[in-house]
């Protein structure tokens, strides 16, 4: 554990709670892509199956359970409890376009040809692109509410901070995980456009609007 990794995890937890709290307190899932949330739930379920056979630390276990339960709760709120407020008409990104390539990539790049390792690789690749339905939705509606922007900023920062953590671990421990690093860089690049808009608009008190 190092400071970058810890800050990354804090940012990740913050993102998850910002989203849950926003939906719960406004009693609305407007502007949130249910498809992205389903993809994140698949990511956590596929990656954290090792909960059943590998124990790393209490911290690790608690965080895994937290991400699984929070993402399931988010999906439940969007598709069941506040279904009437969910903006399905604008949430039209075809998730098979990210599911199938992630699965194919997992079969090509993995650390061993076992079910759990393939699921782990798949989850890493899928996580990198799981936000695309949400970004697509923001582009389609042309704007995002400020809390949605804060959520996206925290979620994007998490992987960017992990990149610093990987650089640090490479120099201090010689640890290098090429699958996570490559996917993590792609994931962070996907947020760059949004980071720019966030800094130039949302932080200056304006609403995030995308030009058509």
């Amino acid at each position: 554990m190092n400071l970058f990794r810890l800050m990354g995890d804090v940012s990740h937890v913050l993102a998850v709670f910002i989203l849950l709290a926003k939906i719960w307190r406004t009693r609305s899932a407007a502007g949130i892509s249910g498809r992205s949330q389903i993809l994140f739930t698949i990511v956590y379920l596929a990656r954290y199956m090792d909960l059943f056979f590998s124990f790393i630390s209490l911290y690790n276990t608690v965080m895994k359970l937290l991400f699984i339960s929070a993402s399931c709760a988010t999906v439940y709120l969007i598709y069941f409890k506040f279904r009437a407020t969910y903006d399905g008409n604008h949430d039209t990104f075809r998730i098979e376009f990210v599911l199938v390539p992630s699965l194919l990539l997992a079969f090509i790049f993995h650390y061993s040809m076992s079910f759990f390792e393939l699921a782990w690789s798949f989850s890493i690749f899928l996580e990198a692109v799981a936000i695309l339905p949400q970004l697509f939705m923001v582009t389609k509606t042309g704007e995002a509410e400020n809390i949605t922007s804060h959520y996206l900023f925290a979620l994007g920062s998490y992987r960017a901070l992990y990149i610093l953590n990987w650089i640090y671990r490479y120099y201090t421990e010689g640890h290098f995980d090429p699958i996570a690093v490559c996917a993590g860089i792609v994931q962070t690049i996907l947020y760059c456009d949004f980071f720019y808009l966030y800094v130039t608009k949302v932080l200056q008190g304006r609403k995030l609007q995308v030009l058509p």
Binding site: R5, D9, H12, R47, D50, S54, I56, N60, M63, K64, F67, Y111, S112, S114, E117, W120, Y162, N165, F176, D177, P178, A180
Partner: peptide, 10 residues
């Protein structure tokens, strides 16, 4: 090198 069983990150 990576030990496949040691995914210690989230």
């Amino acid at each position: 090198a990576i030990d496949p069983a040691a995914h210690d990150e989230l």
